[in-house]
Write a protein that binds this DNA or RNA. Sequence first.
DNA 1: GTGAAAGCGCTAACAC
DNA 2: GTGTTAGCGCTTTCAC
Lengths: 329, 329
Amino acid sequence: MATIYEVAKLAGVSPATVSRVFNGSTVSAAKVEAVRAAAKRLNFTPNRAARSLRRQESEVIALVIPDIENPYFTEMARGVEDVAQQAGYSVVLCNTDAQIEKEARYLRIAVAEHMAGVILAAAGEHTNLDDILSTGRPVIEVDRSTGYDIDGVVMANRAAGAAATESLVDAGYRRIAFVAGPQHIETASERAEGWRAVMRRRAPEAPLDELLHYSTFQVDGGREVMEQLLALPDVPDAVVAGNNLIGVGAIQVLTEHRLTPPQIGVAVIGSLPFTTLSPRLVTIVRLPARHMGVTAAKMLFERIGGDRQPARTVVLRSELQSATVARPR
Amino acid sequence: MATIYEVAKLAGVSPATVSRVFNGSTVSAAKVEAVRAAAKRLNFTPNRAARSLRRQESEVIALVIPDIENPYFTEMARGVEDVAQQAGYSVVLCNTDAQIEKEARYLRIAVAEHMAGVILAAAGEHTNLDDILSTGRPVIEVDRSTGYDIDGVVMANRAAGAAATESLVDAGYRRIAFVAGPQHIETASERAEGWRAVMRRRAPEAPLDELLHYSTFQVDGGREVMEQLLALPDVPDAVVAGNNLIGVGAIQVLTEHRLTPPQIGVAVIGSLPFTTLSPRLVTIVRLPARHMGVTAAKMLFERIGGDRQPARTVVLRSELQSATVARPR
DNA sequence: GTGAAAGCGCTAACAC
DNA sequence: GTGTTAGCGCTTTCAC
């Protein structure tokens, strides 16, 4: 690769001028022209490693997520990517598998690589951001909060849980189970709270403690709990899935048992990715994942640009994408 | 962040020695100990930007894919990530949206960032690797070939297309349509060839030209073509989907038309991600995407390690995951 | 085995 | 508006 010196020589200017041309400083039109021509001839691209070293900042942001195979997060990643691309940044996708150690490793790398900032969907409740924040690098939390006073974008989880439940109650179901994610993850417990509030009000006779089950945010988690629910002496007449993958698992099990909706009511918080289900049988409470990514990325670039206002949290509302039809009698 | 100089001072050695400790050169045990202690005390992490600049190579690899929202590619990414992580490398995920310009931009960045190598699922047929290959950086092609003489991992697409078709013929279907991806994409046409070969042999009366339809490798593509097929005067009795997303789209449309398998035969090349379908009704020809990622990453690290053997292409076989049951009479 | 020192390519402070 | 120059933090000769 050509360097700034070779370009300078060919254009008959100093290296500093070449740098200025590529960084938007004031350079006379004639020299700009000469430099651009020389750069093109030599197929010059600025060496980013050198630039990062010098500037103490690279044009890369880290997107740290717990599960790259969950379409909820890839949809979000997509939003982040689109904004970053436009800002001329690249995105390093860091998959933590919900493991705190992997997460810590990636955060360390982000610092060591002088990445411009981080968008983080925390692996659990013990994320330590002391080091990275002390470097002054901006971190935006998404989906889950970290306990630090930083910018963030979250879903209105309580409302989403409530909306899903409400839809099933409206359709005539009463013994509505809730399959939540891991208890220690905020999104999981908040959604469960939404369910609980609606149930208390509209199905006060239902035994909430029996109906609430914690699990993992994965297909297998949904399957496992659904099997348990079906084995109960008193099987629930409906179920709310705490996220998209739990929903997939639950529906798989129901299908295998020939118990498809509306024989049993099903509501899912989050979109059913690539569903082959006929719509209108299942309640879908859509979470605007792409929008979350876009919003987080925009906030991040504001911070990278030097914005110093107090930390903000944006709460994104869910949307009832399809509602369960009335329960058959 | 602490630098190598501060660590050196605290440990009472020279910066060079600190560097050696972190790069596995010969250093006396006592000094290794002192350096490690000092590094730990200062919470030292080597500055990767500086290292990259000096070594002309960073501990980052690029994974360039056409669609980050396609589970086939995220599954592959997962495989790549796992291998990279173990090798101490990070992965930059570059989503090209199947656009050649975005792809070119990412390849340029890979060079400018001194990335150690690239794993590339090409956007189309016009990928230009001249620049990046001239820098000596290894590029591994996956899923689709680029026309360059480089290492690669591909699926046995012809065989996959044949297996999918064969399964439907075995189940008693005869007028079997094929919904392929974009005509200019090799994976698409190869799979179609597999279908064609089986059809010629086992359903010679079928009008192949009418039954083959090119589309996009996306859900909407599958939907569109499926609608067209259903509108035909002479509706096919079965359909092979050229990839996972086409399969999803096709099944969605069929479901909406109340035409679920086995009323019409369906075979999908690739796994149905997060399917809520009852298994055993649809033929699934599984493609080992994760394995493709793992294999490609291993090859890449061999090259990064200095391997100079002639280019290799690994062909991965598909696997019949479920087979359509016999057609009802 | 260890230290001194040069230099990777760039940017920014300073001088003109 | 433009050139000179120092230095970002590391690795790697080259001496010893």
